[in-house]
Design a protein around this nucleic acid. Sequence first.
DNA 1: CAAGCAATGTGTCGTATTGACGCAATGATA
DNA 2: TATCATTGCGTCAATACGACACATTGCTTG
Lengths: 251, 251
Amino acid sequence: MKNKSNLNINQFLKHISLDCVVFGFHENQLKVLLLRMKKTQEWALPGGFVQEDESMELAANRVLKVRTGLDHIFLNQFHVFSDPERSNINPAVPDVLEFGITFNDADWFNQRFISVGFYALVEFSLVQPKPDLLSDICEWISLDEIGSLMMDHRQILDKALETLRLQLVFQPIGYNLLPEKFTMPELQKLYETILGKELDRRNFQRKILAYNIISKLDEVRQGVPHKAPSLYRFNPENYQKALNEGLGGKW
Amino acid sequence: MKNKSNLNINQFLKHISLDCVVFGFHENQLKVLLLRMKKTQEWALPGGFVQEDESMELAANRVLKVRTGLDHIFLNQFHVFSDPERSNINPAVPDVLEFGITFNDADWFNQRFISVGFYALVEFSLVQPKPDLLSDICEWISLDEIGSLMMDHRQILDKALETLRLQLVFQPIGYNLLPEKFTMPELQKLYETILGKELDRRNFQRKILAYNIISKLDEVRQGVPHKAPSLYRFNPENYQKALNEGLGGKW
DNA sequence: CAAGCAATGTGTCGTATTGACGCAATGATA
DNA sequence: TATCATTGCGTCAATACGACACATTGCTTG
């Protein structure tokens, strides 16, 4: 039973959804990809549903491919949001009714959803944001400019950030967020933004270099004021090794 | 539409299940609560489904209350298992048909499930294991005696253990696994079992004491061979503080 | 019943890690 | 050409960590 829109809800599992917190880094700021809902003008995380033959991970990849144009995105599930009240106030329903979608579809959106949260780390410049059926805008918003979001999406975002901070302590971060070549101050700013606090420039460099996950290049960044900083790039082998084995693993 | 058994599947959300890895510590061994399926004799994790008005956490608590007799169990979700093939080989179906359950119920068990994995830490001696409708045995099995499990439950167990190991590095563990009073060697053995490697007795004590989460008592363990070890107990306030703020948090 | 012994309680020492900070070099800016 | 923000490199003390020594306790055993 198809419907007028290009969204065929009948191929999706009931009660289950996913929401993605897509992190990017640009102009020394951590940004998140958000959608603005047509009807309510509320901002929301990109999300979607699960087809009958795909895993949650595949579904998240499929959703993000449409939303960003990217394939093989670095993705991690971090929490399941299952408060029975979380979707009671779903404001998407009036939207649905306005855009040529049948009442059966409104029922679909009105049901209770248990949502699996994913966070994604992507290289900002590669993303081509595309709104979905219910939104008119899809764009990057700086972390400190994000106010309240639709439903419990603010809570999902906060939990993603908290998870990312914990990961940072025992796993390398940056390979998926920075361009191939980057400077030490840029990498440091990324860490500072995620952690939400300032770090000592010299101690940071010492620690990062000790991990052996980045290599210094024979180039400097051009066209910047003051002294030109050296460029670095990640060492894929050691980075992967650090991902598997952890960094400062105590005990 | 009720059925003959005391399991009313109609109150549950379709496609969604949960599985619990319940850890206990006894006789210096880490144990997991397992069920043996009546029909196939395979071992399985305790699990269940989600009612229409409860969160995943509430559902997990409800399931474990029945299975262990305990309330307010320390519970954490750790991963969602959503491989479309994971429940194709569900061996519970023949069981279901044999125990007076209607064919509609067999359909229920035959559907695809996305399962949220929880791990629980409980005090061994407080648990009163009870089998469920499809199992004849519910008991503690030592970690190193666990072979293959039903469906993907072995994979779920392994992931739970991996998560527990990571938690151990930056969060205190033990309050929920040990009796009120315990000895330093017991606590160390718990850490060693979870980490899967031996630790230096003296360095372990120094490190643990530095966290200020346990207090030494004016008692020693009675009736043990050789020198009687002192008893300790967790300091609830500092333990909770460490849970929130983390332990050796780098950066 | 005393010597032996296994396990516990306490401390040391060299090394590595960390946090705080100094200072010279660079290169655009004024 | 002098200035100055920023980068690159280094120092030092405090702390944490791993490896190990030694004394103590109290059951075990000859």
